[in-house]
Design a protein around this nucleic acid. Structure first.
Lengths: 142, 142
DNA sequence: TATTGTTATACTCTATAACTATA
DNA sequence: TATAGTTATAGAGTATAACAATA
């Protein structure tokens, strides 16, 4: 009763499939991080700082596709929650690194993301999965 | 100067690649539809109505993953712009179909989406592209 | 002059809850 | 009882513009 014979012409479009797949991933990730009081964007920022201690907010934003203006309140909140410390390599820049609490949280995030990813992977071999990831990367790097 | 040696551990994640690729597609599509005063969501609704005249708002929403509550103002606006007509198969349902102006706009949308998609496709053969679309469909259909 | 960080603001899309009218 | 449509509201993410401080 919920699904009559509906013809969806969007199903053949790459953009549509990307959007639906991305939305499904994001919703599942948000649920996965729910009890950590972290949103997907915040989690991604923590993982990037972990691998690049001292990174500035601007470089962080450029790497993840987040504008400076949106990065500012995000970094301020992670700092207020004592997950990141701020140093000043410059007198105009903010170098970010994880606190001990931030490190612990980043480890937990990484573990949860691993199972989250596995939950969504179709029956793909490792090389097939790598090929898919590389292919998607080529789609938007330009 | 904008890209030092930053290590991005997210690049190996399918969810991250999906999100970036999807965002790039969506932004390009929004720009493509800009002068038609249509947002991507509205354009997708028009294309679905075109292929399924008389479809109800609820079925539309179920097919595209848009909640009834968000579908209502969307349909009301398309109706106010005289792009869709509403009939009543039921006394509680709204059957939607395109007006002549809606049909003309749908044709223009379809043409623009075709070039928009082509702009983003990496060097893939037709079967490779189909395989990618099918694979993404399997990711979120569950 | 260009860049960093910041604030304010608006837009798009999504989510929930509550309500009515009808099946 | 369940479903269709509606309204109100909130949240997350993103966008632009403008500003002060610094390089």
């Amino acid at each position: 009763m919920a699904e009559p014979d509906i013809d969806n012409p969007l199903e053949a479009l790459l953009g549509y499939q990307l959007r639906r797949a991305s939305a499904a991933f994001l919703a599942d990730l948000a649920h996965t991080l729910d009890d950590l009081a972290l949103r997907p964007t915040e989690a991604s920022v923590l993982l990037l700082i972990e691998r690049n201690p001292g990174i500035t907010q601007s470089d962080l934003g450029r790497t993840l596709g987040i504008k400076r203006a949106n990065m500012a309140p995000l970094a301020a909140m992670l700092s207020a929650r004592a997950l990141v410390d701020r140093t000043r390599p410059d007198r105009r820049s903010q170098g970010l690194q994880l606190t001990d609490a931030g490190e612990a949280l980043a480890a937990e995030i990484a573990a949860r993301i691993a199972t989250h990813e596995a939950r969504f992977l179709p029956d793909l071999s490792i090389p097939e999965r790598s090929a898919l990831v590389a292919l998607l990367g080529r789609v938007w790097h330009r």
